[in-house]
Write a protein that binds this DNA or RNA. Structure first.
Lengths: 337, 337
DNA sequence: GTGAAAGCGCTAACAG
DNA sequence: CTGTTAGCGCTTTCAC
């Protein structure tokens, strides 16, 4: 029942283990009849090289570690899928870990990545706080920030321009004639999905002389499952809004649900624009207008970049921004002031 | 920049590498002052043992491989989350692979699992076809079937009783007074989520003398993203149904979307009951009645079972069934015949 | 108690 | 071209 090793193959093929090793790594350097004997033995024993032993020597495991807040969040699931496909293409396997944005959990996983000698780390969780950065540096393992970035530190990243994307969403609403606009955003302590999108919202308002809307905003912690509750808070705060921008499609779905229950029709009475373009957004009621992130591409691009860093030591572009796009569907309409 | 090894620690602590090894594995057997010296050296160098080297010796990698159709499917995402939490608790890491239900892709990943010496495999994809079974057996690695099972082969599994769950869903509709019932199901070639739920549907009809509804069914291949399309097909086939059972919540969401566009109100004109109880089902419009699978628990239980098989060689219960439950929300109502 | 040495499975000089 | 040998980093006898 023991798995066959290179020795077993060598014995069966009546050659030395180095010859077996050669037929696997540089077949041309082995004379044909011996090579065939080895190949036959490999076939017969169903031999497959032990990746641990190889990894020990090559100091390369072809494994990437990924830390992600929660795989159940469809936005991250899309990114992960992009990572996975690119990884398969480039010969890596992914060790995926959910951090729940918890520091202990994150550090514990990073430690495990180190021990397992992963070739690189895909960091898709939270901004990079100073102590996180230190921990990451201690590991001496290439890191790629995904859907997050850092201006303080020289860490490579792939993401969209969140500030601009939020700006575009709100500007779209304004261009459609809306003058009373609200927002459901993520906590401002989240400097990536929270603060930046808030900034985009504010900038759009200011540039269009709508400063009075500045306080029409409600925040949720991370990926709240009580999204209708956030909607309720916002509507209590500013009942007269005609359009709402949400920082995620989940939030938008909760909002849609809340408005529907209150008998407020979308988009007739209130327009809603989401963020992310998750796969379900086109079967929401009504179909959701949203700013699309190239989530899958963010994931795959991140792996590609990480791979070039692993192989070449560095990459040309440090902070890479992928284009976002507004997908107009049925949840928004123009407002006849 | 090289990672410190046990040798570095030994040198710094002025002891042999065996002593270092001992303080890590049986600290009691090392005299105190030496132990402290070693501990100090470990601290100073930030030394962490190389899991590859250890794995080579112990023949245990504390890694589990999981094959799953598509991580973007929220049902599987929930299962994965359960797996992940249990894995963390039990000291494993997960290598997650999306198969897209593609045989080549699956086999390629299984092969990679073998080479990487994973301690066990979580198989959450497709029924176990004969050639899949053979491949699995060749690996000589413990396998756990998750949300799928096999009656032909002696493979351990964790899932719900799909036939009964579907039966219960349909029986619930019937008990609510519905007599014209339709179903959107998965392809019957899918012996797990397709065939069994179809059987449950049929049995419920037969036991309640509703055989005339037997053909009110439409099938989709796997997790179709054109769920509204399937809904359209069903409504064309049997426009007079008053209740529809869908084999997944995604399908239900697509149906809800389609019905809404056609101006057919749910549940007033048509009741809808889904399957899975994904996290979003409680913010659908209307909130979805569904048969809940304990998805998270299925994932965590699977890891627990696999762990006992890995550690003890076998488990008490081979095929384990977890309870399902009907969650009544707003998408169904009783029918006054 | 502790160091020397063998070995996990494999690759990579190094001779021949 | 191919076998022998020396490791990769760590654990584990086996003597001392």
């Amino acid at each position: 029942m023991r798995k066959p090793t290179i020795k077993d193959v060598a014995k069966l093929a009546k050659v030395s283990i180095s010859t077996v090793s050669r037929v696997m790594n540089s077949p041309g350097s082995v004379i044909e009849n011996k090579r065939n004997a080895v190949l036959a033995a490999i076939e017969q024993l169903e031999y497959k090289p032990n990746a641990l032993a190889r990894g020990l020597i090559y100091k390369k495991t072809n494994t990437l570690g990924v830390v992600i807040p929660d795989i159940r969040n469809p936005y991250y699931a899309d990114i992960l899928r992009g990572m996975e496909d690119a990884s398969k293409r480039l010969g890596y396997n992914l060790i995926i870990c959910n951090t729940d944005r918890d520091k202990k959990r994150l550090f514990s996983y990073l430690n495990s990545f180190y021990e397992r000698q992963v070739d690189g780390i895909l960091y898709t969780s939270d901004p990079v706080y100073p102590d996180y950065y230190n921990e990451l540096m201690r590991l001496k393992i290439p890191v790629m920030l995904v859907s997050t970035h850092s201006m303080e530190y020289e860490l490579p990243s792939v993401k969209i321009d969140d500030e601009q994307a939020a700006y575009d969403a709100v500007a779209y609403l304004i261009a459609s004639g809306h003058r009373k606009i609200g927002m459901i955003g993520f906590d401002l302590t989240d400097s990536i999905a929270g603060l930046t999108r808030y900034h985009g919202f504010i900038r759009a308002l200011r540039e269009h002389d709508l400063d009075e809307c500045k306080s029409n905003i409600v925040y949720v912690n991370d990926w709240s499952y009580d999204t209708p509750d956030a909607a309720a808070q916002l509507m209590a705060k500013c009942p007269d809004v005609t359009a709402i921008f949400t920082a995620s499609d989940e939030l938008a779905m909760g909002l849609l649900c809340y408005l529907n229950e209150r008998g407020i029709s979308v988009p007739e009475q209130i327009s809603v624009i989401g963020f992310d373009n998750i796969r379900l957004s086109h079967i929401m009621i009504p179909k959701l207008t949203t700013v699309a992130q190239p989530s899958y591409r963010i994931g795959s691009r991140a792996v590609e970049k990480l791979n070039t860093i692993i192989e070449q030591g560095e990459d040309t572009v440090l902070r890479e921004y992928l284009p976002h796009e507004i997908i107009v569907r049925a949840s928004t309409r123009s407002w006849r002031g």
